[in-house]
Structures are given as structure tokens and as C-alpha cells.
């Protein structure tokens, strides 16, 4: 099994705890990195890259003191090394201009509003994980338990 990471960024600790808790079902196979700022996330992401490991999904808060979540995801998207990494924006503040910006830059794969629904969040992450694994050419067999069957079926038909 490859080492494939999920990464969460949220400046409010209680909220970060709650997100990570909802994603605990994936933790057995996908270690979750928890970050309280964009700056911290960037060092963790660089470490993951340097160690030659996978970063499958980044779940980012929107309004944070050091950097706006959308700006961060746009930058991450423009970084060749993390092109395949799936980006999920978790936001309590969905303004029109921000949404357009995110979509135009194709930086956000999913958008989920606070307060979020646990099953919905898990469903999105499951789908994004599946897409990442298939697009990155990783052997998906060991991960079947955590993958989205419908996405898997569609993607496999395409290839």
C-alpha cells in the first residue's frame, strides 16, 4: 500500500477537530494531517512531497488569518506537483465573487458549506479519493473499501 495523505486546514481548533473526527473512517488507510494555518499546511505539503508520498485531498477552510482558503487552493492548483491533488473548500462564507473565482481557476473540486453534513462530507472525500487514486495510477485494489463504487465504475469504463 502506498502512503496517501489527506490534509485539513482550519484555523479554529474546535472546527478542525470536528472535521478530522468526521473523516476518521478514512484514517486507517489514509493518514490525516491537521493544520491550523496555511503556512503550516505548506510546510507539511512540502514534507509529503519531499518524502515522495501522495497528497490525495486537501480540505481547506475559507476565511483564515494568514491566507484565504481559495487563494491557497488556486496556488496549489497552479503548482504542477499537486495537479492531481483534489481540493475541497469548506466555507461559512460563500460570496458570489469568491465562488466565480474558484470555479474559473478550476482550483476547487468540491465546495461544501458550513455547517456541513457528516455523510455529505464523507461522500465527497470518498469520491475525490477515488478520483485521485485512479488518476494517479495507484493500484486501487487495497483501497476498495474506502472508494466510491460509482466513480470507480465510471472511471474504469473510461480508461
Amino acid at each position: 500500500m502506498e502512503k496517501i495523505f489527506l490534509l485539513c486546514i482550519e484555523d479554529q481548533r474546535e472546527v478542525l477537530n470536528a472535521v478530522v473526527e468526521d473523516l476518521a473512517i478514512f484514517e486507517e488507510a489514509f493518514p490525516i494531517e491537521e493544520c491550523e494555518s496555511v503556512a503550516e499546511a505548506i510546510t507539511v505539503i512540502e514534507d509529503i512531497y519531499d518524502a515522495g508520498l501522495h497528497l490525495a485531498v486537501v480540505i481547506s477552510d475559507h476565511v483564515m488569518p494568514d491566507k484565504n482558503g481559495i487563494d491557497f487552493l488556486v496556488e496549489l492548483h497552479q503548482d504542477e506537483r499537486f495537479r492531481n491533488t483534489k481540493k475541497l473548500l469548506l466555507t461559512g462564507l460563500a460570496t458570489h465573487a469568491d465562488t466565480i473565482n474558484a470555479i474559473n481557476n478550476a482550483a476547487v473540486d468540491r465546495y461544501i458549506a458550513k455547517p456541513w453534513d457528516k455523510e455529505k462530507l464523507q461522500g465527497y472525500v470518498r469520491k475525490l479519493l477515488t478520483e485521485y487514486i485512479l488518476e494517479s495510477g495507484i493500484d486501487y485494489q487495497p483501497y476498495l473499501k474506502w472508494m466510491d463504487q460509482e466513480t470507480l465504475y465510471q472511471k474504469l469504463r473510461k480508461y
Binding site: R13, E14, L16, N17, E33, E34, C35, E36, E40, V44
Partner: peptide
């Protein structure tokens, strides 16, 4: 106390 360490400290 909850979690008293920052995410970086936890790491």
C-alpha cells in the same frame, strides 16, 4: 483542557 497542543506541536 481539550487539545492544548497546536497542530504543529501534535505533529
Amino acid at each position: 483542557s481539550g487539545i492544548t497542543l497546536s497542530s504543529a506541536e501534535v505533529r
